[in-house]
């Protein structure tokens, strides 16, 4: 469903992606792990065209991602994104945030979008917050609204860019459990995360990225429990046993 072939990307003189080749199948949950600055987020941002890439190919359901082509709109409505810092629209209520894309991009009838928007907010456990504005919500609540906003586009896949990194520790669980339910329902997900527990329990596959290359990838359990590569072993040891 998502295919990356030899993707290169530089910011000025710094090459952040040095030939990434990977694919995500329909219904698969892929967690991307790796140190800060390794290029994890950049991969996600290239997939839905928030960043351009210099060479290689990214295909979403066979369509090439090109952020300057008109086709990018169709790709973005199929591949939603959830951001580290939520990026909810602060001047609109939770429900208005959720229906913004369906009504103003996909031109769905408002009544229909509202009905589904309420159902989605209920699904993420925030039915009673429909009329609250984002600044009135906790970080965990805001991120769950953001997930509902992503779902409202009825996407074929959702990209999560460190969805719990900006949250207070006690709020992480609510967001992860919403994500776990999505995975159980068969949603295709690419998750950049530092939550190794989530990766181990929910992910089908894990990619370990360091220095702009995929160092190691495979079934979640084997990458996390029996990493083959020295850099993976070193990274996991630091993350799992920081002291």
């Amino acid at each position: 469903m998502i295919e990356l072939t030899n993707v290169h990307k530089s910011f000025g003189k710094v090459e952040v992606l040095k030939g990434i080749t990977a694919s995500v199948e329909k219904g698969e949950v892929v967690c991307v792990i790796g140190p800060s600055g390794s290029g994890k987020s950049t991969i996600l941002r290239c997939i839905n065209g928030l960043e351009s890439y210099d060479s290689g190919d990214i295909l979403v359901e066979g369509a090439r991602v090109d952020r300057n082509a008109p086709s990018i709109v169709a790709i973005r409505t199929q591949v939603s994104m959830v951001f580290q810092r939520f990026n909810l629209f602060p001047h609109r209520t939770a429900l208005e945030n959720v229906i913004e894309g369906p009504v103003y991009v996909k031109k769905e009838p408002r009544a229909e979008a509202l009905e589904r928007g309420r159902a989605l907010l209920a699904q993420v456990g925030l039915a009673e917050k429909a009329d609250s504005y984002p600044p009135q919500l906790s970080g965990g609540q805001q991120q769950r609204v953001a997930i509902a906003r992503a779902l409202a586009m009825q996407p074929k896949a959702i990209l999560f860019d460190e969805p719990t990194s900006a949250l207070d520790p006690e709020l992480v669980g609510d967001v992860l459990s919403v994500m776990r339910r999505l995975a159980d329902d068969g949603m295709t997900m690419v998750v950049v995360t530092h939550e190794m527990g989530f990766a181990g329990d929910v992910a089908d596959r894990v990619l370990f990225i360091d220095g702009g290359v995929i160092v190691e990838q495979g079934p979640a359990k084997s990458v996390l429990n029996q990493p083959q590569h020295a850099r993976t072993q070193d990274f996991l040891r630091r993350v799992l046993h920081p002291l």
Partner: peptide
């Protein structure tokens, strides 16, 4: 991030300006 969120749901430049 506001602009990226708008782009990520498929909004064009003008719509991002006007709505967000």
């Amino acid at each position: 991030g506001q602009i990226e969120a708008a782009q990520a749901i498929g909004m064009g430049w003008w719509q991002t300006m006007r709505r967000v």
